[in-house]
């Protein structure tokens, strides 16, 4: 069954016709051409598809798009404003926290969720706050550095 819905993404409204049971992840990637939100597993285990829903990090692979109607969705594409990187994005660049990069949009969205709630996290809080995002390249250490640097930049 097709359904017409309106999604609010990165401050803009999108009208889109979707299968009723389409997942938000697939709608973002396939219908709206916003592939910054990654698909890594489709089963809620890797965090690559993390987006902010009303300011809170959620997994777009476990969310039906129809249930996201009326909510403010923020994706990685909505983070940098006017060509200027968000301080979190800057921190990931400067801390050499990026390798293959496929997990990075999700990592950045989780960092935003963490720092919005807890601007000065301890290392243990960083490890906990980021642990829903899997990276296979970096060994995480430099991502922890990036989160610490992002916290400093936002202070």
């Amino acid at each position: 069954m097709k359904r017409d819905i309106t999604l609010k993404i990165n401050g803009q409204s999108y009208e889109v016709r979707i299968e009723e049971d389409a997942l938000l992840m697939d709608v973002l990637r396939k219908n709206l051409y916003l592939p910054g939100t990654k698909k890594g597993c489709g089963e809620g285990e890797c965090g690559a598809c993390t987006v902010l829903v009303d300011g809170v990090s959620e997994l777009s692979c476990l969310m039906y798009a129809v249930m996201a109607e009326g909510k403010e969705i923020t994706t990685i594409e909505g983070l940098s404003k006017g060509g200027k990187l968000d301080p979190i994005q800057e921190a990931f660049v400067e801390a050499s926290a990026v390798q293959c990069g496929y997990c990075i949009p999700g990592m950045i969205m989780s960092t935003k969720n963490l720092l919005d709630k807890n601007p000065h996290p301890t290392e243990a809080e960083i490890l906990d706050g980021m642990s829903g995002n899997i990276c296979r390249c970096t060994g995480y250490k430099k991502i922890v550095d990036a989160v610490k640097l992002a916290a400093e930049k936002r202070a």
């Binding site: 809620g44 965090g47 959620e58 997994l59 989780s110 969720n113 706050g129 642990s131 829903g132």
Partner: peptide
């Protein structure tokens, strides 16, 4: 609750 999965799942 703080040991369930990870942040995103706990948020949802």
């Amino acid at each position: 609750c703080s040991q369930v999965a990870a942040t995103q799942i706990r948020n949802m």
